[in-house]
Computed example of a mutant assay.
Amino acid sequence: MDDNKQTYYISIGPGEILTVPNASPWQFKIEATQSEIKQLRRLFNANIDNRSDETIRAMTPIQEYHNDAPNDRYDGNLVKIYEMIHQLGDEEARSHIEGMGILQNFTSE
């Protein structure tokens, strides 16, 4: 297992994990091992899958947004993503996430 940490730049919206800061806009800087990046990538990929399920839900007019399993999974994964970034991020990333209050409003599954 590779224990060497590298710097990565994270863009939440598109789910990008970048190795150089000028490749694309990013919000958070983290230090992570390859295994931590794989775990973060799995969370981003799960949310991409959930977005597809949400598109189908959006075309079903009688299904309420707040009573929707794909939406709940997406929200849960997003909190896990922010938890990982908070754990691995620099001081600016941790401070920003703490200011959002997202980790206080949700619990991990």
Rank of each mutant, 00 (worst) to 15 (best):
M1H: 09
D2N: 15
N4E: 14
S11F: 03
I12T: 09
I12K: 03
P14F: 12
I17R: 06
L18D: 02
L18Q: 13
L18H: 09
V20L: 11
V20K: 14
P21L: 06
S24R: 10
P25Y: 13
P25W: 04
W26R: 07
Q27R: 09
F28C: 04
F28T: 08
F28D: 06
I30W: 07
E31K: 13
A32V: 02
Q34C: 05
E36V: 05
R42Q: 13
F44S: 02
N45G: 06
A46C: 03
D49K: 13
R51K: 14
R51M: 14
D53A: 12
D53G: 06
T55F: 13
T55V: 15
T55S: 06
A58P: 07
Q63N: 07
Y65D: 00
A69Q: 10
Y74S: 02
Y74Q: 09
Y74R: 14
D75R: 13
D75Q: 15
D75K: 14
G76K: 10
G76S: 10
L78Q: 12
V79Q: 02
K80M: 10
E83V: 00
I85W: 01
H86W: 15
H86N: 12
Q87C: 01
Q87M: 08
L88F: 10
G89P: 07
R94W: 08
M100N: 00
Q104R: 11
F106D: 00
F106V: 02
S108H: 08
E109H: 07
